[in-house]
Simulated assay, not measured.
Amino acid sequence: MQQFAHIFSYRSALIGVDEIELGTDSDEAAALFKVILDDLIKRGHKVVVTTHHKRLAALMADRDDVELMAAVYDEEARRPTYEFIQGIIGKSYAFETASRYGIANSLVNEAKKVYGDNSEKLSLLIERGSQLERELKQKHKAVDEKLETLQKRELALKEQKEELHRELQKQKAELKREYDLAINEAKKAARGGDVKEIHRAMNAANKKLPREQKESIQREVTFNVGDEVKYHSQSGTIVAMKGKNEAIIEVNGMKVRVKTKHLKHTKIVKQKPRTDLKLNVTKKAGLKCDLHGMRADEATEVLDKFLNDALINGWDEVIVYHGIGTGKLSYAVKEFLKQHPRVKGFEDAPQHMGGFGAKVVHL
């Protein structure tokens, strides 16, 4: 005890104590030396203690910075193995050691009776309690680590959610900007008052609108020549195939090259053997727009809307009837077609489709 009194004046020392509780009551010594060891550890000392008394070991077992080690004893050979097991409180083996040193077995057995089964069970309970406490701490540590991992994942998901929200707000702002730009173009056209200019400005505004991204759906459908199909709102017949992905259909006398993914079957017509008479007659036909009897300004307005509808529906060739008359309407139609940005070209229709009184327009 006097030596312990001098140790408190040092810091960060390596201290070894053998049989720490000898010479005093074990319960009182356990409480006293528990407090002393706590203070020494607090001062930064490294302490190695050997003891046979389980009370002190049980009191120190609740510290995370204390490591328990039990000496292994070979009960058959009745001698120590000088090996250790970490994490548990060992047995004293006092009776086995007494027998090994020659104490009569009758005396050892009598001592066991005096010690009693309850004391032996109490020692086992102390050992088991210490072991369970350490196992519980290890499990708590594992749970804390998992909880920390889950919290990190939760934080990462939260950051990802916030990043997606920021990206969504950015896209919404860009979308609003594009719509505002298109609306301003439309308002600018409306203020102009000219019907033709309004249509042109509206087309320009429509181009500035963001296009909807539609996911194409692959269909396992085959098409053959002669199949009756539907293309948008028009019905027609397949007259030729250009591979698996394209077909030429005839709608109201006009041939249009389209993607097969835009076609739907209405009825399959089986080809029957027949005799065809081929004539060298040039035939061009298309969707019809009849402008007979209209004034020039009225006709150009109707023609502009007709061409826009044809473009939306995917037609690449249409026919416009204007008649011959005085030539004013024919001149107005030609001038309008020359200025239209989506018209690739036009020419007079064949004689059987109107001749000089109609125009075949290529879009």
Rank of each mutant, 00 (worst) to 15 (best):
I198A: 02
A240K: 12
T97L: 07
K272T: 09
A142R: 14
E178P: 04
T51H: 07
E110L: 09
V269T: 11
E135K: 07
V320C: 01
A111L: 03
E178M: 09
L175K: 04
V318N: 03
V35E: 13
K113G: 03
A358L: 03
T222Q: 09
M294K: 05
Q339M: 11
E127D: 05
Q234A: 13
H265T: 05
M202A: 10
E215K: 00
L168Q: 08
L337G: 03
A186E: 08
G236E: 05
S12K: 14
Q138D: 14
Q160C: 04
Q160H: 06
Q2R: 15
L287E: 11
A296Q: 08
L279Q: 09
A31S: 14
K139Y: 12
K267Y: 12
K196V: 12
E246R: 11
G23K: 02
A240N: 09
G325N: 13
K172W: 08
N203E: 11
V256D: 07
R274E: 10
R100Y: 05
D64R: 02
R63Y: 07
A182M: 05
D276I: 13
K270V: 13
G129K: 06
W315K: 00
H199E: 08
Q169P: 01
I217W: 01
A310Q: 01
K244D: 09
V269I: 13
S106W: 13
E67P: 11
I103M: 11
E228S: 13
S106T: 14
H232Q: 14
K46I: 13
Q151W: 05
A13N: 14
I183S: 13
A31T: 15
E212V: 14
A310R: 05
E28F: 15
E246K: 10
L124T: 10
E347Q: 08
S330K: 14
R191P: 06
G44N: 02
